[in-house]
Amino acid sequence: MRRELITFELSGQLFGIDIMAIREIRAWSPVTVLPRVPDHVAGVVNLRGAVLPVIDLSVRLGWPATEATPRNPIIVVEHEGQSRGLIVHGVNDIVSIEADSLQQPDGAAQARITGFLEGLAPLDDNMVMVLDLAELMADEELELAA
């Protein structure tokens, strides 16, 4: 079975999210910073009258914070009825992969983020890190921002 992914860049790495979880890709808009939320929550934005928590995906994965500019898109994802915005460095393309081509990473270098990955998919000469939205969005403190 084939899966379609939206691919995007973050800290020079290629990531993918299942296209069925994507609600929209927005241009950058400044966030309202909230007190007492986890470091990876950049803040919230107004999405057609609804409060949308925005996650700095780089921080969520354990990397340095994104210095957000108007060139940083926000990918709006939905999982189990909850929407989140993800700050990324750039959106690339829609790709199709074989579902059984996902491989599990090994090695200590990937250990910090492997909990957020469904697996790695070969794509041309690159590897796409396919994000597991259930794990990525599992955060009790984030509910307070919604």
Rank of each mutant, 00 (worst) to 15 (best):
E4W: 05
L10E: 00
G12D: 02
L14G: 05
F15H: 08
M20E: 12
M20L: 12
I22S: 00
R26S: 10
A27K: 12
W28H: 14
V31R: 01
L34W: 07
P35W: 02
P38I: 09
H40C: 06
A42G: 03
A42Y: 05
G43A: 00
V44Q: 07
N46R: 10
V51H: 06
P53I: 10
D56E: 09
L57N: 01
V59P: 02
R60S: 06
R60T: 09
P64E: 04
T66M: 10
E67L: 08
A68T: 05
A68Y: 05
N72Y: 03
I74F: 00
E80N: 13
G90I: 03
I97R: 07
E98V: 11
S101K: 07
L102T: 03
L102A: 04
P105K: 02
D106A: 12
D106E: 15
D106G: 14
A109K: 13
T114N: 12
T114Q: 14
G115K: 12
L120W: 02
L120V: 04
P122E: 01
L123F: 00
N126D: 15
N126C: 09
M129T: 13
M129A: 15
V130K: 09
V130C: 12
L131S: 08
D132L: 13
A134M: 11
L136T: 01
M137R: 10
A138E: 14
E141N: 14
E141I: 10
A145C: 11
